[in-house]
Measured scan of single mutants.
Amino acid sequence: GKMTGIVKWFNADKGFGFITPDDGSKDVFVHFSAIQNDGYKSLDEGQKVSFTIESGAKGPAAGNVTSL
Score class of each variant (00 low, 15 high):
A57P: 15
K41Q: 10
G59A: 05
I19W: 00
G46K: 06
D38N: 10
S33I: 02
G63S: 12
K8S: 09
A34Y: 01
V30F: 11
Y40M: 12
D13W: 15
Y40A: 13
D22S: 10
T20V: 15
A12I: 07
F51Y: 11
W9E: 08
D38L: 11
N11K: 10
E54C: 13
I6K: 11
N11A: 09
K26Q: 14
S33G: 07
N64H: 03
V49M: 02
D22H: 07
V49A: 02
K8D: 04
K26R: 14
F32D: 11
F29Q: 06
K48P: 11
A12P: 14
F18A: 08
S67L: 15
F29H: 06
G46Y: 04
F29Y: 10
A57K: 15
A34C: 06
A57M: 12
K48L: 10
Y40R: 15
V49I: 05
A62M: 01
H31G: 04
T66Y: 09
I35R: 04
E45Q: 15
F16K: 05
K26S: 11
S55G: 12
D27C: 04
V7N: 00
A61C: 13
G15K: 06
G5D: 00
G63V: 13
L43T: 01
T4D: 05
M3W: 07
K41M: 08
S33L: 04
L43Q: 00
F16S: 05
W9M: 08
V30D: 02
G15I: 02
V7Y: 00
V7M: 03
D13G: 15
G56Y: 07
G39T: 11
T4H: 11
I19M: 02
K41L: 07
N11H: 07
A62E: 01
A12T: 13
M3T: 12
P21W: 00
F16V: 09
K58A: 08
G46W: 02
V7H: 00
K14F: 07
L43W: 04
I35S: 03
I19A: 01
F32T: 13
D23Q: 09
Q47K: 06
S67K: 14
V65N: 01
V7W: 02
D23R: 08
F32C: 10
L68N: 07
S25A: 10
E45H: 14
D27S: 04
G56P: 04
Y40Q: 13
G39P: 09
